[in-house]
Structures are given as structure tokens and as C-alpha cells.
Design a protein around this nucleic acid. Structure first.
Lengths: 112, 112
DNA sequence: AAGGAATATTCTTGTAAAGGAATATTTAAG
DNA sequence: CTTAAATATTCCTTTACAAGAATATTCCTT
């Protein structure tokens, strides 16, 4: 799991950009307008999103049309689904762990 | 979608802690040992995870046993699944967008 | 060729966050 | 009551990042 997607989405404006792009490709100008960002900041955030692999740009003369790349979302989906174990099996119960703690007290050589 | 989960997971060591906790609850000491962090840093990262709602602690005498909270993962799963539209319908194709751009050139009053 | 529109980049500054070191707190044990 | 173990907190320093302002780049139009 490449965690750079988390850093990319952790910023308010970038998350907003991603939400906008879910409805379809957009130019930098439109992204700036809809997010209320100034154009340079929009470009900078798009650069971060691009370096994290979340978006790609296609040139159209003067403009750059940005759209989402599916792959990182696939990867994230796979990861979060693999987390399902957290709540539906018994691994998150404390009983097990308390028992393990007990055994460790009995065999303290397992420490470090 | 509360994006604080992204900030919490964006940090290398915190992501590692979450991965460890997927296998079951752990004490601070064990988390520090397995991640290679010093105890105070482990506590600090656990505090961030706790404030983001990703973990909870249960006191056991001297120790604090941390475990994952399922809810934020549910929320993340729901969000990422709602992103599926990105790649399986036609909204991400450029054709539409280029057409829209054309109409805007014809009706420039739609700008701002 | 000149001017303008759309976008990207650079530089600076303010701020938040991470690590290190030291210390405080809580609890069990004697 | 004193000590030690486990954990949390504080203070300090360094670093990363986001916004603002200014400027550079690219491409169309005339």
C-alpha cells in the first residue's frame, strides 16, 4: 500500500478537487473557480495530486484537462476491504490479548 | 467524509501502527518495540490516531491496550466504493468535456 | 510579430507537525 | 512509603507544506 494517496487527500482543497473530478474532467480554471482557489494554488495542488498518481492531465491547446486515475482508488479499495477483518472476526477482542499478556509475564524472555 | 483519517494515515509510522493493530490489540510498549519508535513518539502517534477516531485505549493497570475502531474504516470503505463510478461509466471520458468546452466558447456568458 | 488567455513555476513567509530529551503520572510490588 | 515499570506530556528544534505575490511559459488570435 502506497500511503502517498493519504497525504494527497489529507488536504482540504485537494480532497475537494478530487470530489469535483469525480463528476468528470475539468480544466485548471474551472477547478480554481469551483474551489475558490487562486489559479496558482490550484495548479500547485494539481501538481501534488499528479505526483501522487491521482490525476493525469491532457493538454488541449492553452488548457490542461485534468481527470482522475482509477488505479490508486483500486488500491485503496483493496486495502480498506482487507481491513474488514478488524470488526467481523474475533481478533479485535481483548480477551486474547489479555491471555497473551499473562503468558508473557510467565515467560519474560520473549521480551526484546 | 471526514478527511482527518487521511492525515492520520499519511504518516509512515502511524500507518505502520494501524497495520500492526489489524492483527489485534497491543500495548504501547509492544507498538514501540515493533515499529522501532521510542516510547514517547509511539504515545504521541497513538494520540493522533486516537483523536482522529481510529483507535481506542483500554486501561489494564499500568498498561494501555490500544485497538482499532471500525467506524472510520467503514466510512472510508463507503467513500472509496462510491468512487467506483470513476472508471466504469463514461464520465471520465474526455469527449464529453471537450464538447462542453465548445459550447462554452459559443456561450461565454456562462463564465463566472 | 504582438498581445492576451490559460497554466506553471519560483520565491518568500507563516505555521503545523515530527523527533529528541527530559519529566510527570499512574499503578503494582515490596 | 519507596521504588520501579509503563505510559503520557512538555519543551525545544528542525523540517515540510500551504498561501501569497510575482513572473515565466505556452498557445491561440489577429
Amino acid at each position: 500500500m502506497d500511503i502517498s494517496i493519504f497525504a494527497a487527500l489529507a488536504e482540504r482543497n485537494r480532497f475537494h478537487i478530487v470530489e469535483l473530478l469525480r463528476e468528470g474532467p475539468l480544466t485548471v480554471g474551472e477547478i480554481a473557480a469551483r474551489t475558490g482557489l487562486r489559479q496558482p494554488q490550484a495548479s500547485k495542488h494539481l501538481r501534488v495530486l499528479s505526483e501522487a498518481g491521482l490525476v493525469t492531465a491532457q493538454a488541449d491547446a492553452n488548457r490542461r484537462i485534468y481527470k482522475l486515475r482509477p488505479e490508486p482508488f483500486f488500491e485503496l479499495e483493496a486495502w480498506v476491504e482487507s481491513c474488514r477483518r478488524i470488526w467481523d472476526d474475533r481478533f479485535n477482542q481483548l480477551d486474547d490479548y489479555l491471555n497473551r499478556l499473562q503468558s508473557q509475564s510467565a515467560n519474560p524472555d520473549t521480551k526484546e
